[in-house]
């Protein structure tokens, strides 16, 4: 029997939890059909999380693409179907890609599995990002460099820790309701690898503690910069990203296993730590950087620490 999993009309990191809640009730080898017919919008996180979901299934899942031509065309432009075809049985015809007059896709969905992939990601985004970030988000060249450094480090986490490949995507868009309709740039990096808890458990000589779960593993790695490697130089990637996002009022959220931690800026009302979520392998990272507006605060709110 095939279970239909309905994709919410607006698919992002929050609404993707509805998908996971539904999948969590199934056995790993149950056949699923991911029904995206009524999807109208998806964030980069939503799109690559759908690819990651397929990786976690023991029986090849099926997917029905969005019915709305504009939505399907957009998903095509992001490169979603190029990877989806490898992971899903596609029901129905694939949408055509309509040429975009102005693309807000800074980086199409890109597979990340080895060091050379990170070089490719950095090369490609360098060619496009600086102009778009400066024009649309008032982010100057110096900050663009830090943005790309952050992207590089987050991608490296997949290469170094996940144990299997993942995906990255970067996109700018305008929020309709939040932040007074400001533009944002979002980076999403997802993998279905071993996740933070198992990665830290592999640390040589690690002493087990009474409280040890996905939430604590995320606090250790994201807030305290702990790595499974004993090397003092490790853990700088996420620390550097946190530092950059703190200065730029950006938001970082990392989901792994059954928990999700967030560095929450003052403009957002997310909670620092969510636990007891539906289990999902690997780690899923989202970074949001808002457009710079004169007089806007750069304060960062709470963390999970």
């Amino acid at each position: 029997m095939t279970t239909v999993i309905t994709v919410p009309p607006s698919l992002d990191d929050v609404s993707f939890e509805q998908v996971l809640d539904r999948v969590a009730t199934l056995a790993p080898d149950d056949k699923i059909l991911v029904d995206a017919r009524h999807a109208r919008w998806a964030s980069p996180y939503g799109l690559i999380a759908l690819l990651t979901l397929a990786q976690t299934r023991e029986t090849r899942p099926a997917l029905t693409p969005p019915e709305a031509e504009e939505t399907g065309s957009y998903w095509s432009r992001t490169g979603f179907f190029q990877f989806a075809e490898e992971l899903y049985d596609i029901h129905g015809s694939l949408p055509r890609t309509r040429p975009a007059t102005e693309s807000n896709v800074l980086l199409e969905i890109t597979a990340v599995a080895k060091s050379g992939d990170v070089h490719d990601v950095v090369d490609r985004i360098q060619q496009r990002a600086q102009h778009i970030l400066a024009r649309e988000l008032n982010i100057d060249a110096q900050v663009s460099v830090r943005f790309i450094m952050t992207l590089s480090e987050v991608c490296q986490n997949v290469v170094e820790h996940a144990g299997r490949g993942g995906w990255v995507a970067v996109q700018t868009y305008r929020w309709r309701h939040r932040l007074g309709g400001r533009r944002v740039v979002q980076i999403a990096v997802c993998d279905a690898g071993i996740g933070f808890r198992r990665s830290l458990e592999s640390t040589p000589g690690r002493v087990a503690t009474d409280r040890w779960d996905d939430g604590m593993a995320l606090e250790e790695a994201v807030i305290r910069g702990v790595s499974r490697f004993r090397d003092r130089g490790r853990g700088q990637g996420l620390a550097g990203a946190r530092n950059f996002l703190g200065k730029w009022a950006g938001k970082l959220s990392v989901r792994s296993g059954t928990a999700r931690i967030a560095i929450v800026p003052s403009w957002d009302d997310d909670v620092p730590l969510r636990e007891g979520l539906a289990p999902f392998p690997g780690s899923q990272v989202q970074i949001t950087i808002p457009e710079r507006v004169a007089g806007a605060t750069g304060e960062t709110g709470g963390t999970g620490a």
């Binding site: 950095v122 360098q126 460099v145 450094m149 590089s152 480090e153 490296q156 130089g233 990637g237 550097g240």
Partner: peptide, 9 residues
């Protein structure tokens, strides 16, 4: 061109 934290280390 760009130098990231891990490479600087």
């Amino acid at each position: 061109g760009l130098l990231d934290y891990s490479c600087a280390d």
